[in-house]
Design a protein around this nucleic acid. Structure first.
Lengths: 154, 154
DNA sequence: TTGTATGCAAAAGGTTTGCAATGAT
DNA sequence: ATCATTGCAAACCTTTTGCATACAA
């Protein structure tokens, strides 16, 4: 996410443009695999060691509510975020939990189902489940399903 | 899920067929909306008040690993499960978090994307996001986004 | 100056684990 | 008899909240 976008978004919503917001959104857009809050926190602390985990939580929640980023559904316990909100799809590795984006224009225009239940569809995405290249390689060491990145301080 | 299925599954995997397993899987299959562990725990305690929350966690994890049930990705913090593992799709209400199943045969046969990345696709499902009938009704009271059912005991 | 965001600490919510006792086979 | 499951309690991980301080506008 370019700097200019972050500035514009904050201006549009009358949100103070803080260094923390800049760096957290930046870090998210640099991560292709739907990081957890802790993933981002470790990234961000390299440039800003004093940032608190709480702040990362708050920034992500704020911008997810604005629709600028998205919280993605993932079967693991910790929440995951992505910066892309345009239509795209996901590859979820059942072995290691890794989630990659999939772009395929022909999947972006499926026929929407009838709305018998009164549900109003705004958007959709397809989740493809299977094994990523690392985990499906038979002989090579498999990626472990990491529980959590170690917590370093509050 | 019929009783007979539960018995068969346990036999096939050499798992003791306990009353807890029977009742938890039963409860899951009676819930159409992808319950949390606590949702199921409250259901189950009506028939078996002494069952522990830990047991519900363990049973769900056991059978999810076997592929008999599935843990579904949901943006809320608590894990959710479903008993249907045949191909189907989901309607996720962005307002209240409710998740319903969607059956539509024409969505079950989309063309699978090319596997450039070496990802091996086993299955897929489509998540439709929007507003459920309750939440999209303009004048009626909206369903609140419930945080959690209150915890009653350990 | 004014109001919101941040950082910290603590609480709350959600999940897992160790172990003794129970129960299925 | 044997071995896995259960229940409990405690630990652990994840997320939220209260409040004083710092910062953007």
């Amino acid at each position: 996410m370019p700097e200019a976008d972050i500035e514009r978004i904050c201006r549009q919503h009358s949100l103070p443009l803080t260094a923390q917001r800049r760096i957290v959104l930046q870090a998210l857009s640099l991560r292709p695999t739907h990081p957890t809050v802790d993933d981002l926190w470790s990234d961000v602390r390299q440039a800003m060691p004093e940032i608190s985990r709480t702040t990362v939580y708050r920034i992500l929640e704020t911008f997810a509510h604005l629709g600028v980023i998205r919280k993605v559904g993932h079967p693991d316990s910790a929440a995951r975020y992505e910066s892309r909100t345009s239509r795209h799809h996901h590859l979820l590795c059942l072995q290691c939990g890794r989630m990659e984006d999939l772009d395929d224009a022909s999947l972006d225009t499926i026929r929407l189902p009838g709305l018998k239940t009164g549900f109003q569809i705004e958007d959709y995405s397809i989740q493809f489940r299977g094994l990523c290249s690392r985990c499906s390689a038979p002989a090579k060491p498999r990626l472990k399903r990491r529980k959590t990145a170690g917590r370093t301080k509050a």
